[in-house]
């Protein structure tokens, strides 16, 4: 074969390749709209979006809050809110997901969280399934995420409505505590587990709830979720202690610890009976219920403004 003919052939191939690009890139339908997710990926908006699989309790709650519950075809075993979520098909736990099950459900859209293993996201993507990852780090990112889910699943109006309602409620709480001086903002210790003492520092949702609700996090100088010393808890002497109750059961081991350990009797919160159980699902999920969480903390911290707190799950 001569060198010349092979170059010619290359040129012809290049020509057709160019033509192909020209035709398809100018084709209007091929320019799908994209939206960026919290993992920094550009995700094409699927059309239609009739079947949604949700891989975390928070995204499940978001789907329901956008009135898209009917489109939800698969959830995790942890998805327990709202009640209807429990009846949906299960595709695994938060971090142990059955790829087979997800594919079998033929979703147009899979909503994932930061806890979804990255390889699951990659695998689903390589199988041609649209995956949208939510990983909010604060309340405004939660709201932003809800808005994006609304756009990607074709419920834009409902999303706007929800966003405005959430922002309005948060603003209301902020306004009611805005006049308080630092001395009028009680310190709050949020207990996640007692052995060892595990609490939330800054850069956590709980810290934001406490701050918005007119309180001060007793460990706001630390970052993230941290183990702290019992000595230090007594030294910081919080005015209020909130303790996480798993799955809506009241009277967890941590709650019992707070009430029964005699060494804690010197702590203001214990002396003044300011120990409050809060539902872990409400305060730990980055869904539309962050507003409920703010309300809970508001009643705990300032019952004189927001009314007495009643444990709810």
């Amino acid at each position: 074969m001569s060198k010349k003919s092979s170059t010619t052939r290359n040129r012809i191939a290049l020509f057709f390749l160019g033509l192909w690009f020209l035709v398809f890139s100018s084709f209007p339908g091929a320019q799908a709209e994209t939206i960026s997710d919290d993992a920094g990926r550009e995700v094409e908006i699927p059309s239609p979006c009739e079947r949604i699989v949700s891989l975390s309790p928070a995204t499940t709650e978001i789907v329901f809050s956008l009135s898209l519950g009917e489109k939800l075809v698969g959830v995790t075993t942890y998805c327990n809110y709202p009640e209807e979520a429990k009846k949906k098909e299960k595709v695994g736990t938060i971090n142990e997901i059955s790829l087979e099950k997800v594919v079998e459900l033929q979703p147009d859209l899979v909503l994932a969280s930061s806890l979804t293993p990255p390889n699951v996201v990659e695998r689903l993507e390589s199988l041609g399934i649209t995956v949208f990852v939510l990983d909010p780090h604060n309340i405004s990112e939660v709201i932003e995420g809800i808005e994006k889910v609304a756009i990607i699943s074709g419920a834009e109006d409902k999303g706007k409505e929800l966003k405005e309602a959430m922002e309005e409620e948060i603003r209301e709480v902020r306004d009611k505590v805005s006049h308080l001086s630092p001395e009028e903002r009680p310190t709050v210790f949020h207990l996640l587990w007692h052995d060892p003492l595990w609490t939330a520092g800054k850069d956590t949702f709980v810290n934001e709830f406490i701050t918005i609700a007119g309180g001060q996090n007793a460990f706001a100088d630390l970052s993230g979720y941290v183990i702290v010393d019992l000595e230090e808890l007594i030294r910081r002497n919080p005015d209020i202690i909130t303790v996480v109750e798993d799955h809506g059961e009241e009277g967890s081991l941590s709650y019992q610890f707070l009430l029964s350990d005699s060494r804690l009797k010197v702590v203001n919160a214990i002396q003044n009976h300011k120990v409050f159980p809060v539902d872990s699902d409400i305060v730990s999920r980055s869904s539309a219920r962050v507003v409920d969480a703010i309300r809970i903390f508001a009643s705990i911290i300032h019952p004189e403004i927001f009314g007495e707190y009643e444990y709810q799950s």
Partner: peptide
Amino acid sequence: GEDLHQLFFWTMGGLWN
């Protein structure tokens, strides 16, 4: 599941409280 951290802490060993 979500209670994992409690067990995890115990197995790490500590003289916390």
